[in-house]
Design a protein around this nucleic acid. Structure first.
Lengths: 223, 223
DNA sequence: CGAATTAGTCACTTTCTGAGACTAAAGTCA
DNA sequence: TGACTTTAGTCTCAGAAAGTGACTAATTCG
């Protein structure tokens, strides 16, 4: 039924490569070769014996010439109808890339999250799930740190969190929590950014600490 | 290469059906027909046009004659070598079933989490990911409530949380948090369980409330 | 009846967090 | 130069949230 190509694959691995462009997040899309004016997430049909993780890493490599600093599987998507590879199921991954080192190969373009090109339903679902995965894992993995260059100011880190969480945060509270987590160490370098007092540069350097033990949380509103 | 059967499927949908048996969690396994003495998660190859969610619901239906009260996709697994269906990739789901209504059909058996039968690497990975999904979503979805019967005592609810989180909790703190969440309402029924004061029965009935807005969390220990 | 057992609540203490005010170090501009 | 603006970084306080032990209540057991 969906067999337009002689050797239709049954599943593909699609990667949502995310970076922070200026004031907003951006996703990398590939120009679709078969249907013009269509964009899709970079994808690949795994070869025999190739693991899903390896296929995802390969997709990123082909698109950027570089492996993302953090990758994670988002899930399998099979409800939509159309996919460039004619796959029944697409396994989606998210990969994070600091914008400084993110130079797409020919045929790939960054699109800001709020201005995406027209996408098929499944592609759109995968992009949405990608951002949800990022948001839900933000306190479980050093996602914000991975989107920043190796050294950064605390204001830049806070702005990244505000971008990812979509809300403003209080400076003192943010830094207090960061201190308690032993995640950054200061360098002896400072950055002067035009006006205002120069900011100290920090690097991500997590230290041993006791696991925070908290009580129950009932954070869900409805079933 | 892995084509031992004439029509090998490329992917399957496997469901980890979980219930609370007495003092511990249990998962439902199906006796493997092709390899004797082997057990596997209930699975199914989706028909053409069947969505992944629908296939997972169907698997649960076939195994228990009843739909789980809560299901969620866990992820796609493709690193192992062997699967009953010869599938390259298995899409895993988790489904929750209160033990009262959980009567397996013939060929299916509950195994307690701590005493699982021998499993292939992929099957084991799926079961582990299932429990991780449950634990990580415990504060995001009414998982514990779904494993209990329609009415329950607060002590039973707390014991379920202790089982799922693997740690003891303080009674007063637990109830204070539960009160603040507006998730249960009392019935006028009481249960006398042998000795001790009878306990009031409650039902899950979430009420409107303002979304708890918390600050940043840096809960990860290492990259 | 009194001891034991389980349910349910209270009050106290400690910790966490939001918020505003404050100091520090730069640039801008009259 | 000196007042003003801008960004960085710190301090402190008040209110909320969470850990803890002790208390009362209602039942069974002997």
């Amino acid at each position: 039924m969906r067999d337009r190509s002689p050797k239709a694959a049954s599943y593909s691995v699609d990667v949502g490569l995310v970076t922070a462009m200026g004031n907003e997040l951006a996703v990398l899309f590939a120009r679709n070769s078969t249907e013009r004016e269509r964009w899709s997430l970079p994808w690949r049909v795994p070869q025999t014996g190739e693991t899903l993780d390896a296929a995802a890493a390969r997709v990123a490599q082909d698109a950027l010439g570089e492996a993302p600093i953090w990758m994670k599987q988002v899930g399998a998507f099979g409800d939509g109808k159309r996919h460039p590879s004619d796959a029944d199921v697409s396994v989606a991954y998210v990969g994070l890339v600091p914008h400084e080192t993110a130079t797409p190969h020919a045929g790939y373009t960054w699109f800001p999250m709020r201005d995406l090109p027209p996408l098929s339903p499944r592609q759109r679902a995968m992009v949405e799930a990608t951002t949800e995965t990022i948001q839900s894992r933000l306190d479980q993995a050093p996602i914000a740190f991975r989107l920043l260059p190796a050294t950064f100011t605390l204001s830049e880190l806070q702005q990244m969190y505000e971008l990812l969480l979509g809300k403003r945060m209080h400076k003192a509270s943010f830094r207090r929590a960061l201190q308690a987590a032993w995640l950054v160490e200061s360098t002896d370098a400072w950055r002067s950014e035009g006006r205002g007092r120069p900011a100290q540069l920090f690097r991500y350097a997590p230290k041993k600490r006791r696991r925070p033990h908290r009580g129950v949380r009932f954070d869900f509103l409805y079933p």
